[in-house]
Computed example of a mutant assay.
Amino acid sequence: MPMTDFAHNLEAVRQRIAAAAHNAGRAPESVALLAVSKTFPAQDVRAAHAAGQRAFGENYVQESVDKIEALADLRASLEWHFIGPLQSNKTRLVAERYDWVHSVDRLKIAQRLSEQRPAGMAPLNVCLQVNVSGEATKSGVAPQEAAQVAHAIAALPNLRLRGLMSIPEPEATLDAQRAPHRQLRELFNSLRADGLTLDTLSMGMSADLEAAVLEGATIVRVGTAIFGTRDYSH
């Protein structure tokens, strides 16, 4: 994709975020855009970076490690977010390279990330993934277990628990899309009231970012609307 297309797509997404924020009575800058670059090559990330994007989200550990290394010359101005399912045997690769992990879905993963974060690096920013829709195929802690796990993660060294993340079931209408995001926001507010210093709600993607922003998202994770349709054949 030509660089001008990335600039156009990024601007279109930012306009959507700004319009949703306006409708919610929020400042557009209160919502950060995470460009989800999974399955797209390093040169696409480079082009999006040249168009002004700085934060990128990846789902697959080995693919992303190769990409991070290919873009090492941009490391000072790139922010890497891991947003996919994370297996125990892959935590070291992530702990050593990433700035954020949104998809911490159990305490064991957080403990390994904490132990494997290199001493010279800043604390790893993490979000607890919550399975708000209760789907058997989705990762994440059950909402009723979130408080116990969140407090345990917050006590770990080398991590900074920033907030909550969810991937709810797709819904067709704005009202239906807003419901699970509202549930996550209410859980977030209850954890803050319980003493946790959280500032991040990672929710909303290309199809439902407006609903997420209306319900308080601080990071929206957008891939298709920026990079185009994914090809999973490889």
Rank of each mutant, 00 (worst) to 15 (best):
R16N: 02
N131V: 04
S206V: 14
Q15S: 07
R182G: 12
L33Y: 06
Y232N: 08
S133C: 13
E171T: 14
H8C: 06
A147D: 07
R230C: 13
V130G: 06
L161E: 01
D44C: 13
K67D: 00
M1G: 05
R97I: 08
E11G: 07
M203W: 11
R160H: 13
V61H: 03
S202C: 10
I219D: 09
E69W: 11
V141L: 10
Y232E: 08
D44S: 15
A150H: 09
K90S: 07
H22A: 13
E145G: 11
H81N: 02
A154Y: 03
L209T: 14
Q116V: 11
M203F: 13
A55L: 14
S114P: 06
P85L: 09
I153T: 09
R117F: 07
Y98N: 05
A193Q: 14
W80N: 01
S77Y: 11
F82I: 05
L71W: 12
D194V: 10
P180T: 07
V130R: 08
A12Q: 12
T200L: 15
E145P: 10
Q87M: 05
S114L: 00
S88D: 08
P41M: 04
K90E: 03
A12H: 10
P28D: 05
R160K: 12
L34T: 10
T218R: 05
L156F: 04
D175C: 12
I17Y: 06
L78K: 06
S103K: 01
Q15L: 06
Q111R: 15
K90G: 03
W100S: 02
T91V: 08
D73E: 13
K108L: 10
R162S: 06
T173L: 10
D105V: 01
F40H: 01
T197G: 04
P170D: 09
R162N: 05
Q183M: 15
N9G: 02
F188L: 15
V31F: 03
L184V: 15
